[in-house]
Deep mutational scan, measured.
Amino acid sequence: KLATQLLVDLAEGCHTHHFNSLLDIIEKVMARSLSPPPELEERDVAAYSASLEDVKTAVLGLLVILQTKLYTLPASHATRVYEMLVSHIQLHYKHSYTLPIASSIRLQAFDFLLLLRADSLHRLGLPNKDGVVRFSPYCVCDYMEPERGSEKKTSGPLSPPTGPPGPAPAGPAVRLGSVPYSLLFRVLLQCLKQESDWKVLKLVLGRLPESLRYKVLIFTSPCSVDQLCSALCSMLSGPKTLERLRGAPEGFSRTDLHLAVVPVLTALISYHNYLDKTKQREMVYCLEQGLIHRCASQCVVALSICSVEMPDIIIKALPVLVVKLTHISATASMAVPLLEFLSTLARLPHLYRNFAAEQYASVFAISLPYTNPSKFNQYIVCLAHHVIAMWFIRCRLPFRKDFVPFITKGLRSNVLLSFDDTPEKDSFRARSTSLNERPKSLRIARPPKQGLNNSPPVKEFKESSAAEAFRCRSISVSEHVVRSRIQTSLTSASLGSADENSVAQADDSLKN
């Protein structure tokens, strides 16, 4: 292990032709098999893994070397290190390495390699500790012929580059190093199909959405987006994914797998022009299946994007999809995704031109529960009313008269009656009930004795009459309010007539 670390330190600071010789020695160290011998017992696995620490030291050392060589000349050094790393990870899946030390190597290698970024000039870069990406002036992410390196360097940008540029090249004859992302992409596909350690798979799935944002990485080298989509959909639809995973937390289920895969599918929607129609349908189907899991909100957001990006695919699945959405409970976490999906859909009339009455009724059935102001915040309630109004205007004229009683009944049950079921009123009724029952229970537990009763009969009569009056008032709060309003209006009217009579009498006395 110490000798391997010494080789790594020497290679990191070497800029001459001896660098390749040092890498040859490190490569021989990495070539050791990580498969346990067949006769190895389970209690000896930890000791055997400790004997392979030099392999881990070599791989982690290459990660440090690549981070240094990416910004220094010659660029061919970075290319050689990158290829060695990718080849080593491929061996893991070729020979099915399952030892804990092998999983640790893959975890740290993917953690580093999935941080690679590219700008519009195809320059590769890595983020620093502050998250700012520094791009290399010597390494690009696409394949290029050595003699055409300078031509590639002087080509115009596709868009303004992001991030601070690296140091300027030493001279005009500098050759750019090619670090094609397709090599890593193929290893990522192998990981999605064969990885057995949940920690490694979770890391890859968590980092892929951010990497897919940099389309330069994908399009400048032959990366098959179709295969990526197929691998992701197979993970969700195939039963073998959960069987092969180990190291998963207790209670791990298909729902947890959906939570990890759906963000990658959402990021892949922007590549729909490069996906086969069959793959697009598979993607939409997987998102529909996710509606029954805890990732339902993410799936609804993804389907909203699909309705804009892939209208030809979503239009066929939309009638059944809208009916499925009615089975989702009206909760605060689902309110905004569902209502925004319906609001977006209302502005795309070509998608729902074939809707029948059942689909329009489903839209109103989804939106009406969110009009309850005692359960949802003001934004959700306003958005629900907006969706109902928009869809009522957009639905066909023959359907409107049939939906009017349905909508008014839903609004009455969710908006008007919600004020009668407020917690304050319920607590008031509970308190009044307890007050009504309390005197009775006290009389049963403690019967009054005439000799020891010091309270006069008049006081008892007053208290009983007050309790009886309170019971009468607490029967119905709404009736009490109505009666008080009527009494107030009658009182004001009587006072007004009394004032008029007094004024008339005063005038008569003055005349006399």
Rank of each mutant, 00 (worst) to 15 (best):
82 Y>T: 02
83 E>A: 11
121 L>M: 11
135 F>Q: 02
195 E>T: 00
194 Q>G: 05
194 Q>K: 10
197 D>H: 04
87 S>T: 12
246 R>L: 06
232 L>W: 00
93 Y>F: 02
201 L>A: 00
189 L>A: 03
235 M>R: 03
236 L>Y: 03
177 G>W: 05
188 L>Y: 04
190 Q>D: 10
102 A>W: 02
76 S>H: 10
73 L>F: 11
191 C>K: 00
128 N>I: 05
202 K>N: 08
155 S>Q: 13
81 V>L: 06
244 R>V: 04
229 C>R: 01
63 L>N: 08
97 Y>N: 01
82 Y>P: 02
228 L>Y: 01
49 S>Q: 08
76 S>D: 11
173 A>P: 12
226 D>K: 05
166 G>D: 14
101 I>L: 07
184 L>V: 09
93 Y>P: 00
218 I>V: 10
135 F>L: 03
85 L>F: 01
199 K>L: 10
246 R>H: 10
115 L>A: 14
165 P>A: 14
151 E>N: 12
222 P>I: 02
217 L>E: 02
53 E>W: 03
164 P>E: 10
207 R>F: 02
251 G>P: 05
202 K>Q: 10
239 P>G: 12
70 L>E: 01
241 T>A: 12
85 L>C: 06
89 I>E: 00
160 P>K: 14
63 L>C: 12
223 C>H: 04
232 L>D: 01
63 L>G: 12
176 L>F: 14
156 G>I: 11
182 S>N: 08
160 P>N: 13
205 L>H: 00
129 K>W: 11
236 L>A: 07
80 R>D: 02
64 V>H: 15
83 E>R: 12
86 V>E: 01
117 R>L: 01
85 L>E: 00
240 K>G: 13
81 V>K: 00
58 A>V: 01
158 L>S: 15
189 L>F: 02
87 S>Q: 11
248 A>K: 13
191 C>I: 00
188 L>E: 01
139 C>S: 05
196 S>L: 06
115 L>R: 14
147 E>F: 12
135 F>H: 04
82 Y>V: 04
164 P>W: 13
101 I>S: 02
176 L>T: 09
203 L>M: 12
212 L>V: 02
203 L>D: 03
70 L>W: 02
181 Y>V: 04
209 P>Y: 04
239 P>T: 11
65 I>F: 02
247 G>W: 07
117 R>K: 06
184 L>C: 07
142 D>N: 05
87 S>E: 11
192 L>K: 00
246 R>S: 09
89 I>C: 03
175 R>A: 10
232 L>Q: 00
221 S>L: 02
245 L>E: 02
144 M>K: 09
149 G>V: 12
58 A>C: 05
152 K>C: 10
50 A>P: 03
125 G>V: 02
233 C>R: 02
241 T>P: 09
252 F>P: 10
59 V>N: 02
133 V>R: 04
85 L>N: 00
96 S>P: 06
136 S>E: 02
217 L>F: 07
139 C>K: 02
96 S>H: 10
233 C>Q: 04
127 P>L: 06
241 T>V: 11
115 L>K: 13
225 V>Q: 02
248 A>H: 08
68 T>S: 11
180 P>Y: 02
70 L>R: 01
218 I>H: 07
154 T>V: 11
63 L>S: 12
116 L>R: 02
96 S>E: 13
185 F>N: 02
179 V>R: 02
61 G>S: 02
164 P>D: 14
